[in-house]
Design a protein around this nucleic acid. Structure first.
Lengths: 150, 150
DNA sequence: TATTGTTATACTCTATAACTATA
DNA sequence: TATAGTTATAGAGTATAACAATA
């Protein structure tokens, strides 16, 4: 049911197929990211926060996370408040600067993040349907493309 | 800067790279779809509505669009109201059933949609950076994968 | 004085419930 | 009676402005 109008530019065709695969095309596929968030009872942004936090790490400054999510600091406060209420993250003082607070995963947070990533990284059926060799070629080319992004 | 942790499953690697490319990875890339919407002063869902409407077509029933966007009919009413205020779409009676209303693009709507699609389909630099042959291979494999999605 | 984070507030996005018109 | 869309309303999500503490 995917519209298979093909242009003369293979780069456009490749990108169009990607858009389609992730559910942004006109194809009506369900986008993965918001779906996973919903299933875990998180807002998409909350999931994005969890994603950025490294398990076992010392945490990231609130402001840094807010900037990387393109959202306001005040909203960050609110989101972290709610993650904290669910005991998924905790605030820690920053050694160097007593104004900044580091957000770090709790044990529970690490587990939920782990679960989320497993769901996110599960390849869609269309990719599973390719032969192993095709998948390999695809992976190589995509990795090359991803690495070449500015 | 993309995390290049490689698994033993090429399907996972391919999908991970796609997630990264579209800005859903931990890479912090800006997702295309919401960006384009914002630049055109549309909400992402409004853009999705425009995308689904075929230029020159007789229009789609409100309910059909709402279902394909996973949103409530009442919200559809609201969105279409605002699209209509900006003269991007118009409501038409349905020939067969006088309860249903068809949403169709106006001349202005067609133009804005055209502009949006040009922005959306513009391949990211990482794909442009591949050789033409690599792009071709990529496009072929991705089209195959997209077609294989149930 | 400039910066990090918080509080109070308001605005936008989206859903639920009750309603109207048609089937 | 059931269905398509609308209206009224309430709830999430998100920003702006004013503020406290630290630099």
């Amino acid at each position: 049911m995917a519209s298979t109008k093909t242009s003369t530019d293979p780069a456009v065709d490749a990108w169009t197929a990607i858009l389609d695969l992730v559910g942004w095309g006109s194809s009506g596929r369900t986008p993965r990211f918001p779906t996973v968030a919903m299933e875990l009872d998180l807002s998409p942004k909350q999931l994005a926060v969890l994603w950025r936090l490294e398990p076992g790490g010392e945490g990231l400054p609130m402001g840094t996370i807010a900037a990387s999510l393109y959202c306001d600091a005040s909203y960050m406060t609110d989101m972290v408040d709610r993650l904290e209420q669910r005991e998924l993250t905790e605030r820690r003082p920053s050694p160097g600067d007593r104004r900044v607070k580091l957000v770090a995963l709790t044990e529970q947070g690490e587990q939920l993040r782990e679960r989320a990533l497993r769901m996110l990284y599960m390849p869609p059926p269309g990719i599973e349907a390719l032969s192993r060799e095709e998948q390999s070629t695809l992976a190589t080319l995509l990795a090359k493309a991803a690495a070449a992004e500015d």
